[in-house]
Design a protein around this nucleic acid. Structure first.
Length: 274
DNA sequence: ACGTGTACCTGCACGC
DNA sequence: TGCGTGCAGGTACACG
């Protein structure tokens, strides 16, 4: 589910609710998520206050006073929610933290592609999951020069390239299609054949789409909700994603759906010529 | 050392 | 109504 804008939105909601709160207890369900969590190890955070909550790619990092961390990933269907007083454990709830005064943060994930893991590495960015990640798309370092140079001999389709977290992080299946549409680039063009001019357009499209989606609170399809339970509304602004056979909003040609690397890509054959 | 598949899960929409 | 099939915001890891 959640791509960068959704994770960023969840992260902001967590920051509002959790910064400075002290952990009282932890609970996990008997089902493993993508990675197992040893709840006894993780008890290292009991009694600790949360000092920061950050996002890196689609990972959420919770930092505690004693330098321990939790890394959370929402996978496809993960949700974070908060409850006060009456905690209600439902199907597919897999983890919660109880804070002082009966305040709870709960992790819910039907498909269990997400995870919560505990780590005590002082520099969490050296964690195996984080150490090899490409730059964030919204920082200046991610620019057309960077992307052009990195991809100038890549035979990969451009859509697969921008979804690769060694190249740039946070761009998932929805925003890859949406960015390519805005840049008028066909998703199957080989990355090495993208011109400098196209690359400039692509980079600014990626930045714009992601920023607009963050501003809209993410895109809600099926499972995604913000941590306060509200829906994002960027899905209303999709130009191509999930719009097979519907008219292009620019030229009215039918939107086409194809498979690339096992995933659906959507594009307008008129606006995005090969 | 690489690039490419596959595996991990549940729920839902669809066609028969 | 029920059953089988395919598909869904992701990515670590095994394999060639």
């Amino acid at each position: 589910m959640p791509e960068l804008p959704e994770v960023e939105t969840v992260c902001r909601g967590m920051r509002d609710e959790l910064l400075g709160k002290k952990v009282v207890s932890l609970w996990k369900s008997d089902k493993n998520l993508r990675f197992p969590l040893n709840i006894e190890d993780a008890s290292g955070i009991i009694g600790q206050k949360i000092t920061y909550i950050k996002r890196r790619a689609k990972y959420i990092i919770i930092g505690f006073k004693n330098k321990n961390s939790l890394i959370i990933h929402l996978g496809m269907t993960g949700q974070i929610s908060f409850e006060k007083e009456n905690l209600n454990i439902k199907k597919h709830d897999h983890f919660y933290i109880e804070f002082f005064d009966k305040f709870y943060m709960k992790f819910h994930d039907a498909r269990r592609f997400g995870f919560v893991i505990y780590d005590q590495t002082a520099n969490i960015y050296k964690h195996r999951l984080l150490k090899d990640l490409a730059p964030e798309p919204l920082i200046e370092y991610f620019n057309s020069e960077y992307l052009f140079t990195l991809l100038k001999s890549s035979n990969k389709a451009i859509k697969e390239a921008i979804m690769n977290n060694r190249i740039v992080v946070g761009v998932g299946n929805i925003y890859a299609s949406e960015s390519l549409f805005r840049a008028n680039i066909h998703p199957e063009i080989k990355a090495k054949n993208i011109t400098r001019h196209q690359m400039e357009k692509l980079v600014s499209s990626i930045k714009d789409v992601l920023q607009e989606a963050i501003d809209a609170g993410g895109s809600s399809i099926n499972d995604y909700v913000k941590s306060n339970g509200e829906l994002g509304y960027f899905q209303l602004n999709f130009n191509v994603y999930n719009r097979e056979n519907l008219p292009c909003k620019i030229c009215e040609n039918k939107i086409i759906k194809i498979k690339q690397a096992g995933r659906s890509s959507y594009f307008c054959p008129n606006c995005q010529k090969y």
